[in-house]
Design a protein around this nucleic acid. Structure first.
Length: 255
DNA sequence: ATGGCTTGAGTGTCAAGA
């Protein structure tokens, strides 16, 4: 079973790339972030024709998350409970016994900004909610754009980024709080090439210079981590014309 | 130099991303 996550930075623009990628990789489930559309603009028909069911929690212009899967998605949930928030950043559903949680975590803008406080609050509420979800769904995967580079090796220039947004200690502590729930970073379960990232700035030839950050992650509960035999970041879509600034992350689980 | 691209909104130019 292959599960994946990809921040597409507008599904309207990236749909052809998503369809090509699904055909090439044949993943069983793909979590999308930044669809940037309401449900009325979501390409359900094109995805069905490609063999994928979809659920979507969308909004106009910003955010928007979806889960695509080859089999039916059951027990759908949207948004964080007990957290009044108009921003559409979370959707979850079950694929068989595997619980998929797709999240687009806030960017935070800058350390100390209002959006930064919102980010930390969002992460705190997420962790509290996940604690309960893990009881209910022992085989749980949290996939998405975390907007956090967990470690200096996930940053192309750790000195320049030290203490900055996406790398600050409170953000990294919030990430570690997710690990403290028992979740494991699928990517770090395996030996990986150095300087592997999942996002590169559009500006200043970020991708060509590999000026990137690893901020997109797949976290697995103990029961799923045991089943995981590979995890990688697929840089191929980032090389295409008009790419998303993020690359997809894939984890492979024993059936 | 807080820039540099890209997107969506909407038709001039700005917010937001990371």
């Amino acid at each position: 079973m292959k599960i994946a996550t990809w921040n597409v930075n507008s599904l309207k623009v990236r749909l052809p790339q998503v369809l090509d990628w699904l055909a090439a990789t044949q993943v069983d489930a793909l979590c999308l972030q930044e669809t940037k559309t309401e449900d009325s603009g979501f390409p359900f028909a094109a995805l069905e024709a490609a063999g994928y069911h979809a659920i979507h929690n969308g909004q106009k212009t910003y955010n928007g998350v979806a889960i695509l899967a080859r089999a039916g998605l059951l027990d759908e949930a949207r948004d964080l409970p007990d957290f009044a928030d108009p921003q559409k950043r979370l959707i979850a559903a079950s694929l068989g016994k595997v619980r998929l949680v797709c999240a687009y975590m806030p960017n935070g803008q800058a350390v100390g900004a209002d959006k930064y406080e919102y980010k930390l609050q969002w992460l705190k509420v997420l962790a509290a909610w996940l604690r309960e979800e893990l009881q209910r769904y022992p085989q749980l995967a949290l996939l998405g754009d975390f907007n956090i580079a967990p470690d200096d090796r996930d940053v192309y220039d750790p000195v320049a980024w030290q203490g900055q947004i996406l790398c600050s200690e409170p953000e990294r502590a919030a990430y570690r709080a997710l690990l403290d729930l028992g979740l494991a970073d699928a990517f770090r379960l395996f030996e990986q090439p150095e300087r592997t990232y999942s996002w590169w700035d559009y500006r200043m030839m970020g991708f060509r210079r590999n000026h990137g950050l690893r901020i997109d992650h797949i976290l697995l509960s103990p029961a799923l981590a045991k089943r995981c035999h590979a995890c990688s970041i697929d840089k191929a879509p980032r090389r295409l014309e008009r790419p998303s600034d993020h690359a997809p992350v894939i984890a492979e689980l024993d059936d």
